[in-house]
Every structure is written in C-alpha cells, then in structure tokens.
Amino acid sequence: MPTTRELGIGFVPYSPLGRGFLTGAVKPAAEYEEGDMRRTDPRWQPGNFEKNLDAVRKLGELAEQKGIMVSQLALAWLLAQGDEIVPIPGTRHIERLEENTAAADVSLSADDLERIRQILPDGAFGARYAGGMVPEWV
C-alpha cells in the first residue's frame, strides 16, 4: 500500500465482503459444493471458521449499534483506509447493490475503527489462500 500511495495508484480490494463471510451467507467448508474454493480456504476450516464467525458476530454488534449491516460496516472500514481504496463488491441482487452503495454514507469514528482493530487485530483468522494458491512475486 505505501508504494501504491506514493505512485498515486488506486487499489481495488478483492472480495471485500470476505467471500460471503461478512454478509451472513456463510457455512462450514464441508457444506459447500465440490469445486467451491471455500471447501479448502483456510478461513473456513475448523478452528479458524469458528473464530471468524465470532469476529463477525462482534462486528455485528457494532454494526447494530450504528444501525447498519455488517457488510456496510466492512465496506465503510475499507473506504476509511484512504481515498485510493475502491471496494467493488459483487452482487446479483439490486437490494444488495443499494445496501453496498449506502456504505459510502457511513461515518466511522476513531473509536469505531479501534473497536474493529480489537476484533480483528491481524485480519481474518486463517491464511487468505490455501497453500499453493498464493502467488509468488518476484
């Protein structure tokens, strides 16, 4: 991120709603169809899955206090990271598009941002990708 900022390059976070984790549409790895990457994603595996569910529950408490959805909280958090951050969540439903767009109007205080940091100090529990799927940058 420091290099993109230095060069004035925008950044589009991939899967800003955590492949469904932050939308409430989540289930354990084994319940997804064969071929769905969440079956092998470390964040869906036993141990990490439960920790991530608990974190989303805590984020839900904060979102509820603010009168918004967890997905809106997540998108507002991304937007609060800098003007060069442009999350583009995917959706198939106009209602979700409207919810996602409304996240741009959510204001997060320094206390809100700190609470989110306390809930997920290192981001999600588990690696972003299973071994062998991580690109090697040269």
Rank of each mutant, 00 (worst) to 15 (best):
G24P: 07
D105Y: 01
D105P: 00
Q118E: 15
R57T: 14
G132L: 09
L108H: 12
E50F: 08
I119Y: 10
Y14C: 04
G18N: 01
F21H: 05
M69L: 14
V106Y: 07
L17S: 03
W77P: 05
T23H: 03
G67P: 07
D111C: 00
L113V: 12
S15W: 03
F125S: 15
G20F: 01
A104P: 06
L113Q: 11
L78C: 06
E64R: 14
E33L: 10
V56A: 09
V138Y: 05
R19F: 02
K66R: 15
D36W: 12
I85G: 02
D111M: 09
R115Q: 15
Y32E: 04
L113A: 09
K51F: 02
L7N: 13
N52F: 02
Y32V: 03
A25W: 00
G131E: 15
V134G: 04
F21E: 01
D83A: 10
P87S: 09
A127Q: 13
E98H: 10
A25L: 06
E84P: 00
E136Y: 05
E114M: 08
L108F: 13
G18W: 03
A130C: 10
R39Y: 02
A74M: 04
I116E: 01
L17W: 01
F125Q: 03
T23A: 04
E33K: 14
L120F: 02
G35E: 04
R57C: 00
A103Y: 00
